[in-house]
Amino acid sequence: MNAAEIFQLIWVAFLETLYMTIPASLIAYVLGLPLGVLLVITRKDGIKPVPTFNTVLGAVVNLLRSIPFVILLAMLFPVTRIVMGTAIGTKSVIFPLVISAFPYVARMVESSLIDVDRGIIEAAQSMGSTTWQIVYKVLLPEAMPSLINGAAICVTTILAYTAMASTAGGGGLGSLAIIKGLNLRKYDIMYVASIVLVILVQLITVSGTKLTRRLDHRIR
């Protein structure tokens, strides 16, 4: 196999990886962000305390988080078939990715928001803010650098999960490395695919850190 052919394989797999990672990350955030907010504001010492709800929500999130992705992928086959139309292939993997990632996102968001100075929230309360105003005008803006940093971690985690897509007949760099590389003993493909994955993770992490620092006005 010549370099051009390898490049072609890698390029397609790279696109497939993005095709799984980007929508899965976005949808995981659409679900996980409000969930993380709920986890914070409904705490006993939160701005809208609903302790029982908070405990139940926390337990559900933990339960989902504790199932390893490969197992979840298999367990979800029937549901995935209903939701995505098929349980096999690159596109179908987006669904289990979302299910696996959104609780993770929720916890990540929670830990970012919990770090917001209590005093700042109290000041907002003392000014007559509604709960919603505190969430989108105080909590989220104040936690923004930390949220961005968390997002970079979440995306790299989802990216790592996509490597297991081969289990469900999905593509991407991970599948390429395992099926073409490992199973067919084309180690060059395995290494190149892995290196591209490493670079991708580095890129996300570094830009996440840079953005975090640029957005944070606490240090200057």
């Binding site: 100075d117 005093g119 700042i120 109290e122 000041a123 309360q125 003392s126 000014m127 007559g128 803010s129 509604t130 105080v138 803006p141 104040e142 923004m144 650098p145 957005l215 944070d216 006005h217 606490r218």
Partner: peptide
């Protein structure tokens, strides 16, 4: 109730020892 409380709070401001400003704004 919460709504009346919020209206009242707008007529009664507070300042704090640690200032409690939003650091990202």
């Amino acid at each position: 109730n919460q709504k009346q409380l919020n209206m009242m709070r707008r007529k009664m401001s507070m300042i704090f020892q640690q200032f409690n400003l939003q650091m990202q704004k």
